[in-house]
Amino acid sequence: MSTLFDLNTKQSSKDSITQANPSPVILVTGGAKRIGAQIIKSAHANGYSVIVHYHQSQAQANELVDVLNSIRANSAAAIQASLDIINNPPALQSFAQQVINIFGRLDALVHNASRFYPSPIGQITHSTWNELFLTNAKAPLMLSQAFLPYLKDANGCIVSILDIHANAKPFNRYTVYNMAKSAHQMMVQSLAIELAPNIRVNGVAPGVNVFPEADSDQAISKPLQSKIVASVPLKKEGTPIDIAQTVIFLLTAKYITGQIIAVDGGRSLTLQGGDAG
């Protein structure tokens, strides 16, 4: 990932959106596509002002912001940054401040950005370790810390998108990813205790809700996809909407913290680890 800090924001107009924003505000990392984009859309439909974080998906982020602002003016913005800003404290502080400057507050932080690809033993490199742990463990923790005072002021919440494989059900040949997601899961449980009673922290663990894009380095073969879907008790692939609905529930569930909800069609009940369980 780039070591450069590069931040751009897009709003519906050149004017700054007032800081006296009456709507709750949510920031979703990796919010331009797929599950992240659906969380953004669902939160917006539920009255949130939304901030779409993206790294490289500028066109998708801007298109999403334009659509949402056409529905409700000055309700959506996009912000660009590589997650490795967490390794540069001044850059991270600047990012946090620019996020707050968009709407003047932050009520919810959703950790969705992630890298996912195999790391078979014998081929694991420091680069693989650093990237997978950065996106799946270190960035969620450091971003949570950076936004802590704003979330505390709002009595807000943090929701992490995890993985059913993080809970002692490792996905074969994905050792580093499994380790990183397990660390992220422990972050959720640890912060739920430490940040109570002011901030609630929960997680959503997808199962087979959206496969990686076929032309990406995260792709899973069609035969393996079919095998995985066949292992799901509900016998079908879930959707990003299933994840987004659960996130929205957790945003409003005032007496739930430290919980991880599996949204997996029952797969975690029969999953034993390996390729398809």
Rank of each mutant, 00 (worst) to 15 (best):
L4T: 10
F5W: 13
F5I: 06
D6Y: 14
L7R: 12
K10L: 12
Q11C: 09
Q11S: 14
S12D: 06
D15N: 11
S16E: 14
A20C: 10
N21Y: 15
N21D: 14
G31N: 07
A32S: 14
K33M: 10
R34M: 06
I35P: 00
A37P: 05
Q38L: 05
Q38Y: 01
S42W: 00
A43N: 07
G47T: 07
S49W: 02
V50K: 02
H55C: 12
S57F: 11
A61L: 08
E63K: 15
E63Y: 05
N69H: 04
R72A: 04
A73P: 02
N74I: 00
A77E: 03
A78M: 08
S82N: 13
L83V: 00
I85L: 13
N88G: 00
P89K: 11
Q93C: 09
Q97A: 14
G104R: 12
D107N: 14
A108V: 10
V110E: 01
V110N: 01
H111L: 07
R115T: 09
Y117D: 09
P118A: 14
P120L: 11
P120K: 15
I124Y: 12
T125G: 13
N130M: 01
F133S: 02
L134Y: 06
K138E: 13
A139P: 05
P140G: 04
M142W: 03
P149Q: 08
D153T: 08
C157Q: 13
S160I: 00
S160M: 14
I161Q: 07
D163H: 03
A166P: 06
K169H: 07
V176A: 11
Y177F: 13
M179Q: 15
H184F: 08
M187A: 08
V188W: 00
Q189F: 13
Q189W: 04
L191D: 01
I199W: 05
V204W: 09
G207E: 11
F211H: 02
S216P: 00
S216W: 06
S216M: 02
S216C: 10
Q218S: 15
I220A: 08
S221I: 02
S221C: 02
K222E: 12
P223G: 04
Q225W: 01
S226H: 02
I228G: 04
A230K: 15
S231Q: 15
L234I: 10
K235T: 00
E237C: 08
E237M: 13
P240N: 08
V247R: 10
I248S: 06
I248E: 14
L251G: 07
T257R: 05
T257M: 06
Q259I: 05
V263T: 11
G266D: 06
G266F: 02
L269P: 00
Q272P: 01
D275K: 15
